[in-house]
Design a protein around this nucleic acid. Structure first.
Length: 836
RNA sequence: GCGGGCGUGGCGAAACGGAAAACGCGAUGCCCUUAAAAGGCAUUGUCCGCAAGGACGUGCAGGUUCGAGUCCUGCCGCCCGCACCA
């Protein structure tokens, strides 16, 4: 393919070994320097890294190395999200124990990552399936149990028939399992929950206080939490004194438009409301029909609403009228009270249902002129609403709630869409839930001194369903921690998202054995200053980790309110129009890439091809371009090294040299290019994460070096030329270092430096070098570019205007027209506005 | 339906309201070479023109402005999240 390629294989191995031997990226708390905690989402040890990993770790390493050079004490750790179903499925299919499978995969992936040359502190490696890790999670589980933040209940849960386990709401995507894409069903089952709803308000409030997060992710979290404010109140059942139906609404102002009410099919009051065996039979038939529907069917688009009218009627407290009562599938038991007041005038769902069943529709908001729609959800003046008539909606809401309170019918009420986090999994490869069921004492937490409850090694994994731990007699049969009598252990394991909800805290003191983490270490390092990962975790991991951190704070373990100050959400890696995947056959193997082009090229291309938040379109030719660029740098530096060494080290970028080092205009212009590049690259990394444009700027500087070198040969003294070239080359190496660390480290050494490039200070643009004498000003006539003009920087506006008007080309366009005004934008342009 | 984002060359992409397309890929031509690879140089939005130059050009239609890819209004299209959430 290519002949003159720099020896990346040797160089990369050399510097990876050197960084490791010198323990360069091993860190400890140091209060004399600012800290920077840079973290990429840790991987699931699937066995091989893929291009998505390459991309996210290239981004993380760029930021970490950049921060090192800016003088920060950088924590940059790596570990393994090691529990989870693939290990168990591999065991079922291939008969290999999940632990063996997982640890082998970790070894493979660690070796692959090392070949990328990422600046990890490998002493801090954390593996979540290690009992020394999950024992602390079990301890916190017991603390949460004591505080009522972990609880057990029987409920209808999402069930993946393929994974044979419960799924949390966050793990169901459009009715399908997030991991295996099977259609999700429901089950009534006992399980453990974390009370994330208790933190709904705080999680929501902090969405406005994390400016370092992408708006898109915050919006998704806000929507997921789904706060709605309104009222809850009672509808008396007609002719049944004492029997009331409680409803929730966000529009209490529409009470006068309530023409019927609806119960969810599963509502506990349904049984009490049916009259006679015939209606009971009909209702039960309806209930079982609804129950049979899968999640997918229930959420299908344009699904007609189905309902059954009961004989019982309720009273609309606003109008005192008796209104019909329905059981219908469009009302969900899981939200609000499971019953609604129906206002067809202002709610489209109610409107549809009312039309279907011939129910009256009362409008309680004045329609805007020309309104042709059906239900009207918008703002307006209240009508047909008794004491609310004439009010605007917000005022009417307040007044309606006051009225409900005064009459003892209801209260203001806030509801959230967020549900408690179901963490029980009926699978083996996870952290055991540390509780015991005793016939005498009931559910009892394991004693703290008995932790960890170790996941037993010997287990039969059949894939037939049911918790595999239930078959392990030695695990299940235990003594009650309270009375000592025979008891059974909990056989469910914890959702793997529990482990990933605190691993970033464990990294602060990974070997600490008196608790989850050492307080002082966490106080020093936390929060994570920059977190980097895929958008797919926008509401899963990122919401759970925020919740768990707040729980740990309330348990007095940490002082931070939020785990991640800033989040960079990187896009997917795409090839041929689709996400890289084995099934599509469009996978690029990072190992092949590193073997062919080197890790530096793989990293540089990942950072150059697109800004990090966008999807990256993989292009083999583009990779060659990245490789070509690094070769171009190499080919300049190596042959010129001797010549460059004749010049004193530039201490590139440090604002210590004055611009008069060079006397020629070419020299000054070249030096300005060097320092403009420093400013651009720094800005692009620091402000927008625009690594692609930062690389462009470095490429331009390299192009300028290639153009300057021969041009300067006869125009200035050799010493001056060498000094300028040395400053330029060293600047390129310093700026390029975080993007392509191995080749730059090697060239840095070849320029006679001892000590790592990454211990050098990041260059700072010299203001004197940036100074220009003159600028090109664009000349416009009526907004169209007609010429250019070179004038001294900051020339007086009057002078620039005179020069512009005197310009031949401008004059030609002014012929026959009168100048109406002249707009002068200093150092940029002159626009001459004319009229006929 | 609700919320968010995005529409720019052949492609990936750039562009504080001020020169649209930087940088890279691809393509074409030339140089080097016995030849190729590698490398170097040049050209590369469309149309008119020998040229100088001109007209057009950032999904569509308007608006604000001396000036709009960028701001505003309304459409069209695509992507993502949530979804009978009362």
């Amino acid at each position: 393919m290519s002949s003159d390629r720099y020896p990346f294989g040797e160089i990369e191995a050399k510097w990876q070994a050197a960084w490791e031997t010198s323990r360069q990226f091993r860190v400890s708390p140091d209060t004399s320097r600012p800290k920077f905690y840079c973290l990429e989402m840790f991987p699931y040890p699937s066995g091989r890294i893929h291009m998505g990993h390459v991309r996210v770790y290239a981004i993380g390493d760029l930021l970490a190395r950049y921060k090192w050079m800016r003088g920060y004490n950088v924590l940059h750790p790596m570990g393994w999200d090691a529990f989870g179903l693939p290990a168990e499925n591999a065991a079922i299919e291939h008969g290999v124990h999940p632990a063996i499978w997982t640890y082998e995969n970790i070894d493979n992936m660690r070796a692959q990552l090392r070949k990328m040359g990422i600046s990890y502190d490998w002493d801090r490696e954390v593996t979540t399936c290690d009992p020394a890790y999950y024992r602390w999670e079990q301890l916190i589980f017991i603390r949460m149990l004591e505080r009522g933040l972990a609880y057990r209940k029987r409920s209808t849960v999402n069930w993946c028939p393929s994974c044979q386990t419960v799924l949390a709401n966050e793990q169901v995507e459009a009715g399908r399992c997030w991991r295996c894409d099977s259609e999700v069903t429901t089950r009534d089952i006992d399980g453990w929950f974390f009370k994330i709803t208790e933190y709904a308000e705080e999680l929501l409030a902090w969405c406005d206080r994390l400016p370092g997060w992408p708006e898109r992710v915050m919006t998704m979290q806000r929507n997921w939490i789904g706060k709605s404010e309104g009222a809850e109140f009672d509808l008396p059942v007609a002719g049944r004194p004492g029997l009331k139906l409680r409803v929730f609404t966000t529009r209490p102002d529409t009470g006068f438009g309530m023409t019927y009410a609806v119960l969810a099919p599963e509502h506990p009051l349904v049984a009490a409301l049916v009259s006679g065996p015939e209606e009971r039979a009909a209702v039960e038939r309806f209930q079982s029909e609804v129950a049979r529907q899968s999640e997918l069917e229930r959420t299908a688009e344009d699904r007609p609403k189905r309902g059954l009218r009961l004989t019982a009627r309720v009273v609309n407290p606003f109008t005192a009228a008796e209104i019909p009562l329905f059981v219908a599938d469009y009302v969900l038991m899981t939200y609000g009270t499971g019953a609604i007041m129906a206002v067809p005038g202002e709610d489209q769902r109610d409107w549809d249902f009312a039309r279907q069943h011939g129910l009256p529709i009362v409008e309680t908001v004045e329609r805007p002129a020309g309104w042709t729609g059906e239900a009207y959800p918008g703002d307006g003046v209240k009508i047909n609403s008794g004491f609310l008539d004439g009010l605007a909606i917000p005022e009417a809401k307040r007044k309606a709630i006051d009225w409900l309170v005064q009459h003892g019918l209801g209260t203001a009420k806030v509801n959230y869409r967020l549900r408690d986090w179901g963490i029980s999994r009926q699978r083996y490869w996870g952290a055991p839930i540390p509780v015991v069921y005793c016939p005498a004492c009931g559910m009892v937490p394991e004693k703290e001194e008995n932790l960890p409850v170790v996941l037993p090694r010997d287990v039969q994994l059949s894939g037939k369903g049911g918790s595999p731990l239930a078959e392990v007699a030695a695990f299940v049969n235990t003594a009650c921690p309270r009375c000592g009598g025979p008891a059974r252990r909990e056989t469910d394991t914890m959702d793997t998202f529990v482990e990933s909800s605190w691993y970033f805290l464990r990294y602060c003191s990974p070997n600490y054995d008196h608790g989850m983490f050492e307080r002082a270490a966490a106080d020093y390092w936390m929060p994570v200053d920059q977190y980097i990962g895929g958008i797919e975790h926008a509401v899963l991991h990122l919401l759970y980790a925020r919740f768990y951190t707040k729980v740990l704070r309330d348990l007095g373990l940490t002082k931070v309110d939020e785990p991640f100050t800033a989040l960079l959400s990187q896009g997917m890696v795409i090839k041929d129009g689709a996400k890289m995947s084995k099934s599509k056959g469009n996978v690029v193997d990072p190992d092949d890439l590193i073997r062919t082009f080197g890790a530096d090229t793989a990293r540089l291309f990942s950072l150059f091809a697109a800004p990090p938040e966008k999807d990256l379109d993989w292009n083999d030719h583009g990779v060659e371009g990245a490789s070509r660029f690094l070769n171009r740098v190499w080919r300049f530096v190596v042959p010129h090294a001797e010549e460059l060494l004749t010049a004193p080290p530039a201490r590139a970028g440090a604002a210590t040299r004055s611009s008069n080092t060079t006397s020629t205009a070419e020299g000054r212009a070249f030096r300005r290019t060097i320092h403009e590049t420093i400013a651009r690259v720094t800005h692009d990394i620091e402000h927008d994460f625009h690594f692609n444009t930062a690389i462009s700027a470095i490429m331009e500087l390299v192009n300028a070096i290639y153009a300057f070198e021969p041009a300067a040969r006869d125009r200035m003294p050799a010493g001056e030329r060498a000094a300028l070239l040395r400053e330029a080359v060293e600047t390129v190496l310093l700026l390029l270092g975080p993007f392509a660390p191995h080749v730059t480290e090697e060239l840095w050494e070849r320029l006679g430096h001892r000590g790592s490039l990454f211990k050098q200070a990041w260059p700072v643009a010299d203001p004197l070098a940036l100074k220009r004498d003159d600028v090109t000003v664009v000349l416009q006539v009526d907004g169209k570019v007609r010429g250019r003009l070179t004038v001294e920087v900051d020339a007086a506006e009057a002078r620039v205007q005179d020069l512009a008007l005197a310009d031949d080309r401008v004059q030609a366009w002014l012929r026959g027209r009168a100048v109406e005004r002249v707009v002068v934008v200093p150092n940029r342009l002159v626009n001459v506005v004319t009229r006929a």
